[in-house]
Amino acid sequence: EVRVRALYDYEGQEHDELSFKAGDELTKMEDEDEQGWCKGRLDNGQVGLYPANYVEAIQ
């Protein structure tokens, strides 16, 4: 698992997508798939998908 930080706001479009604001931190659980989606977990425990290019790894 990798900690990542959102670069942009994202509003989930489907029930299985996460929503977050730029600057939020979350945990990447799985690497992106061929469509460019990652599985992650918000700090509130919600698990879902998000676009991989909306986040950067925290060093």
Rank of each mutant, 00 (worst) to 15 (best):
Y10D: 01
P51V: 03
P51F: 04
D16E: 14
G40I: 00
E14H: 14
F20I: 04
Q46A: 14
L26T: 01
E56H: 08
G45W: 02
K21M: 06
E30T: 12
K21G: 08
Y10K: 08
D16Q: 11
L42T: 08
E17L: 08
E34S: 12
A6W: 00
D24C: 11
G36D: 08
E11I: 13
P51N: 12
D24S: 08
V2K: 14
Y10P: 02
D9K: 03
R5M: 12
G45E: 04
N44T: 01
Q46H: 15
G23V: 01
V47M: 15
N44M: 04
S19A: 13
Y10W: 06
A6Q: 00
D9E: 08
G36W: 05
E14D: 13
L42G: 03
D31F: 11
P51M: 10
E34K: 15
F20E: 02
L49N: 12
D24L: 06
Y50T: 02
D9V: 01
K21H: 15
R3M: 06
A52S: 14
K39G: 03
D31H: 09
S19Q: 01
E25F: 11
Q13G: 09
G48Y: 00
L7R: 08
V55C: 15
D33F: 08
G23W: 05
E1M: 15
C38F: 03
D43G: 09
Y50S: 01
L18Q: 01
W37K: 06
D24A: 10
Q46W: 09
A57M: 11
E25W: 12
V2T: 07
E11R: 08
G45A: 05
Y54G: 06
G12E: 08
F20D: 01
V55G: 06
A52M: 06
D43K: 13
E14Y: 14
A52P: 07
D24V: 10
S19P: 06
Y8G: 06
L26Q: 00
E17Y: 13
V47Y: 13
I58N: 06
G12H: 07
D33L: 13
A57D: 15
E14P: 10
E32L: 13
E30I: 09
G40T: 00
A6M: 03
A52E: 04
Q35D: 12
E25T: 12
D16F: 11
E34I: 06
V2M: 15
L49G: 06
R3Q: 07
Q13S: 07
W37M: 11
L49D: 13
E11F: 14
F20C: 01
G48H: 00
E30Q: 12
Q35T: 15
W37A: 06
N44K: 05
H15C: 06
Y10C: 06
G12A: 13
M29S: 05
G48L: 01
L42Q: 08
E56V: 11
D43H: 07
V47D: 05
Q46E: 02
H15A: 14
D33H: 07
L49V: 10
G45D: 07
G40Q: 01
L26V: 10
G36K: 14
V55D: 04
K28V: 13
N44Q: 06
Y54Q: 09
W37T: 08
G45F: 02
Y8F: 09
E17G: 09
E34C: 13
K39S: 07
E11K: 12
E11Y: 11
V4S: 05
K21Q: 10
I58C: 09
V4T: 03
Y8W: 09
K21L: 11
G23R: 05
A57W: 12
G48E: 00
D31R: 10
S19G: 06
D31K: 08
D31A: 14
G36I: 07
E25L: 09
R5A: 04
S19W: 07
L7N: 05
Y8D: 15
V55A: 13
A22G: 09
Y8A: 14
R41Q: 02
D43T: 08
W37R: 13
R41E: 09
A57F: 09
K28G: 05
Q59N: 15
N53D: 14
F20R: 01
L49R: 14
E14W: 03
N53V: 12
N44D: 08
A57C: 14
L7C: 08
G36E: 15
W37C: 03
L42M: 13
P51H: 09
G23K: 11
V4R: 02
A52N: 04
D31I: 06
A52G: 14
L18V: 08
E56F: 06
Y8S: 09
R3F: 00
V47E: 15
G12V: 02
T27L: 10
R5Q: 07
K39M: 13
G36T: 02
R41W: 02
R3C: 00
Y50D: 01
Q46F: 09
M29R: 03
G45L: 03
E17V: 15
M29C: 08
G23N: 02
Q13M: 05
V47H: 15
E25V: 14
H15K: 12
V4K: 03
G36V: 06
T27E: 10
L26G: 02
R41I: 04
L7S: 06
C38P: 03
C38Y: 04
F20P: 00
E11P: 14
R5N: 03
E25R: 12
D43Y: 05
N53H: 13
T27Q: 10
Y10I: 01
R5D: 00
K39R: 14
Y10G: 01
N53L: 10
A57K: 11
V2D: 15
R3D: 02
L49F: 15
Y10L: 10
D9L: 01
Y50G: 00
A57H: 10
S19R: 07
F20V: 02
H15R: 13
F20A: 01
E1N: 05
A22I: 04
H15N: 14
K21I: 09
L7A: 03
E14M: 07
M29W: 05
E25I: 10
Y8Q: 14
K21C: 06
N44F: 03
D16N: 11
E34M: 13
E56S: 09
L26M: 10
R41Y: 06
E34P: 02
L18A: 01
E32R: 15
N44S: 13
Q46P: 08
S19D: 05
L49K: 07
D31V: 11
E14T: 10
E32Q: 15
